[in-house]
Design a protein around this nucleic acid. Structure first.
Lengths: 180, 180
DNA sequence: ACCTGAACACCGTTCAAGT
DNA sequence: ACCTGAACACCGTTCAAGT
């Protein structure tokens, strides 16, 4: 005997908590954002959050999933352009999440689920690179080139250097892949 | 009128605290290590630590300084070898500190002194690369190549992939810098 | 099913007091 | 100068109790 109206407003509440967490995580960073702060912003008691999310890490995971989904779609639209432009676009885009990216790398060692998410993320990203490098690079070095690109971009993002230097670096990366 | 014996055993105590912190930070990570745990390992009361160090970040800084000094000297001895070997040596060496490296990147946003230390560290490292690339790469791209190398190594270290993949990546990096 | 008040164990840090 | 007991404000999380 199924319930047709399980609860109205419940999913909305969860969305509100997630939205509050997202804003605070991006603005102040994961570490500096307390559960209490999220609860206050969402208009609930702190422990209410634990009805919707297992713990603070699962809240982070939900935010990451949301950000990934949004920006992956956006990235697809830029895929036709020259590779150096794609790379620079990625760097600029990811700059907004640099704090969170560092947090993920740190919390990998404390949260197993976050570790899995991160691995899956890199697999996804490197597959994207692979597709583009397929016609430009000899077979055996594709995975290596993908890694160099991924790590360099990660470095450019998390070490926020000047925009000009980032552009030069992206061009240098792309120039590696022109066919002889 | 100078004191000749300012206090005996005082510097030793500080060294003991530092040693305890270093071991715990490397074994369990900075975040998972409480001041109380360090104090217990050093045989003092938790608040005693604050007589020797301003806060937990300054303790981290002291550990980093110590590790840097030791391993910089060690690195000098490998400087004659082929570049790809140097890179792989670096990766293997830094693997032992990967947790701490991630922590530094995260805490940059919370601690100003740590931020300064990190900037200075990258300047030092890139200067080392620059010296070696000087004879192999055209002048204008030296800083870019140094950055790619530094970030790739950082990625190899913090994403602990298989040793073989790391080696291939180091060789690919080095092969970029052979003179035509 | 959904939400909360109260409590728990812990955290980094401070302060007044001891020697 | 060096060290500590006690306290402070806070943290993420749990639990019994309410609706």
């Amino acid at each position: 005997m199924p319930r047709n109206k399980p609860q109205q407003g419940a999913d909305e509440k969860k969305a509100e908590i997630l939205e509050a967490a997202r804003k605070l995580f991006l603005d102040a960073g994961y570490e500096a954002t307390s559960i209490t702060a999220i609860a206050t912003a969402a208009g609930v008691a702190p422990n209410t959050i634990y009805w919707y999310f297992k713990d603070k890490d699962e809240l982070l995971l939900a935010v990451l999933d949301q950000l990934l989904q949004e920006n992956l779609a956006e990235f697809m639209s830029v895929i036709g352009r020259p590779i150096s432009e794609q790379l620079l676009w990625l760097v600029k885009k990811l700059r907004g999440f640099s704090r969170l990216i560092s947090t993920v790398h740190t919390r990998i060692h404390e949260s197993n689920t976050l570790n899995q998410w991160h691995s899956q993320f890199h697999i996804t990203v490197e597959q994207l690179f692979r597709q583009q490098l397929q016609q430009q690079v000899t077979g055996e070095s594709i995975s290596v080139e993908g890694r160099i690109a991924a790590y360099t971009i990660e470095g450019l993002v998390t070490h926020d250097i000047e925009e000009n230097a980032a552009q030069l670096t992206c061009e240098a990366l792309a120039s590696r892949w022109v066919k002889p």
